[in-house]
């Protein structure tokens, strides 16, 4: 069993237009999806990332505010899951509610020594 990381990108543009009721409905979809992952023993960990950040370059001499990528490229959160294979991990990610908001999921294996 290996661990895989989901990186979530985008979805913000759609989210800001949502009404409170729709936001809550969307949140409940996530809770259900993650709850299912947890109850099948797949879920390891996950958290959202704040919008603001710093980017350090040139041995730390250059410090920029924020991820400068476009909204749809910014990583908004991550999740770590247990899975037999990359294919299975990708299959699990297909149910992710982020697609309702036109966001994307990147699936990567976490390498273990």
């Amino acid at each position: 069993m290996a661990k895989y990381m989901y990186l979530f990108r985008g979805g913000d543009a759609r989210r800001v237009q949502e009404s409170p009721e729709q936001m809550q409905a969307h949140m409940e979809l996530w809770k259900k999806w993650m709850g299912d992952l947890a109850s099948s023993g797949k879920l390891v960990d996950g958290l959202p990332l704040g919008k603001e950040g710093k980017q350090l370059k040139d041995k730390g001499k250059v410090v920029h505010d924020g991820p400068y990528a476009e909204g749809k490229e910014i990583v908004g959160g991550y999740l770590i899951v247990n899975s037999e294979s990359l294919d299975e991990a990708a299959e699990l990610a297909k149910e992710c509610p982020i697609f309702e908001h036109d966001g994307e999921v990147e699936v990567r294996e976490i390498l273990n020594m």
Partner: peptide
């Protein structure tokens, strides 16, 4: 208020 709901939504998706 909209922004804080958004933030709440994002955090409570996970927690």
């Amino acid at each position: 208020v909209q922004e804080s709901l958004l933030k709440g939504m994002q955090i409570w998706q996970y927690k």
